[in-house]
């Protein structure tokens, strides 16, 4: 079964004014759409891999045949990362974290402000294209990590709880070179309910 581009869980303009409708439309339809079609094309001759979920492909990336490893890393990673990314944002969201993740953030980082600072600094410091994540590490701790291009912490055995896209295409039309401002404004659209869902999955 071919991989499919999931619909955005809200309209293109739902995250205005923090993320503009044009950015969302191009980011979802073209960037994410291209990752999905390239992933499908790459797996055409690998029927054994077509039945795996994209999560499995990324988790088991290092066991894939060399012929498809890089193309799955880039395009499977792009599909996986963006699928997560859309659900981590919502209109009328943001604000302080709630539920179990709020307590876990306080326990790990001292307070929410410290965590935000760590996350924003890691996002700004990711040279070139990539993502910044809050992940549950293999040894059960929370940590802020950044990954280049379309890599994902899952390949290293860490579970991605929340992540922000710091490829320039995620923010350039609205913020141009001002990545730190984008990182700061992004907190206005964080969907803490979904972060809590993923935190619960990570803890299983």
């Amino acid at each position: 079964m071919a991989f499919e581009l999931p619909s955005l869980p809200y309209s293109n303009d739902a995250l205005e004014p923090y993320i503009d409708a044009q950015t969302m439309q191009i980011h979802h339809d073209n960037h994410h759409g291209t990752y999905v079609s390239k992933l499908n094309a790459a797996l055409e001759k690998h029927s054994d891999l077509q039945n795996k979920s994209v999560d499995e492909l990324i988790r088991d990336l290092n066991t894939l045949p060399d012929a498809v490893k890089t193309v799955v890393r880039n395009n499977g990673g792009g599909h996986f990362n963006h699928t997560i990314f859309w659900t981590l944002m919502a209109p009328n969201a943001g604000g302080e974290p709630n539920g179990a993740i709020a307590q876990a953030i306080t326990d790990t980082f001292g307070d929410f402000e410290n965590f935000k600072q760590r996350f924003n600094d890691a996002g700004a410091g990711q040279f070139g294209s990539g993502f910044v994540w809050l992940a549950r590490t293999a040894d059960g701790k929370l940590d802020v990590v950044s990954t280049p291009n379309q890599d994902n912490p899952l390949t290293e055995g860490h579970f991605p709880i929340m992540g922000n896209d710091v490829w320039e295409h995620a923010y350039y039309l609205k913020y141009q070179n001002r990545r730190p401002e984008y990182l700061k404004q992004w907190w206005n659209v964080v969907n803490w309910n979904e972060v809590n869902n993923r935190f619960a999955q990570a803890s299983r």
Binding site: I26, W167, E168, H169, Y172, Q176
Partner: peptide
Amino acid sequence: EHAYYLDYQ
């Protein structure tokens, strides 16, 4: 992307 995104997306 910053080299072309405003003009070519």
